[in-house]
């Protein structure tokens, strides 16, 4: 065989239909999303983690006091995706963003339908746009849009 002859190749799709069990905290979080309510969790120092976790990331204490946060907030950082991949949430250019919602002390990683890269700015106010059907998924928030 000619040693420079290319390897044969074939398309291959990896397809896993994972289902994940939720603990008590994430269960409340995802039930909230389905009902179009946003729930964070309060840490011992009074600050609010959103999305919520079962444990305080600094002290590893159990935390379980759920508190509502607003569906509007500020963009803390963003990255513009000019050519979305088919797996990604929007089929037109959009931004991944770290968004601190009013009432939360941490940011949520989500997407902003900002129209164009020039329309994006750190600090800009954005508001959640809900999906037509909400099922208990992070994608129940279809995206955020400039508020």
């Amino acid at each position: 065989m000619n040693p420079t002859e290319e390897s044969l190749s074939a398309p291959h799709v990896l397809d896993y239909t994972y289902k994940r069990s939720l603990g008590p905290i994430l269960s409340q979080f995802f039930t909230g999303l389905r009902d179009k309510k946003l729930l964070g969790v309060k840490r011992k120092d009074g600050s609010v983690l959103f999305p919520p976790k079962e444990y305080d990331p600094d002290t590893s204490e159990s935390i379980d006091e759920m508190v509502p946060v607003q569906d509007v907030g500020a963009v803390k950082s963003w990255a513009w995706v000019a050519q979305p991949r088919k797996q990604q949430p929007l089929d037109k250019p959009f931004a991944y963003a770290l968004i601190q919602l009013d009432g939360a002390d941490t940011t949520l990683l989500h997407v902003v339908d900002g129209g164009s890269e020039a329309g994006m700015k750190t600090g800009m106010r954005v508001k959640a746009r809900w999906a037509d059907e909400t099922i208990g998924s992070i994608k129940d928030i279809a995206c955020f849009e400039p508020a």
């Binding site: 190749s9 398309p11 990896l14 994972y18 939720l22 269960s27 995802f30 797996q87 099922i135 208990g136």
Partner: peptide
């Protein structure tokens, strides 16, 4: 909501 679906689909060559 106690369970969520998180499918993974990736294309390879």
């Amino acid at each position: 909501v106690k369970v969520i679906r998180t499918p993974v689909q990736l294309d390879y060559n």
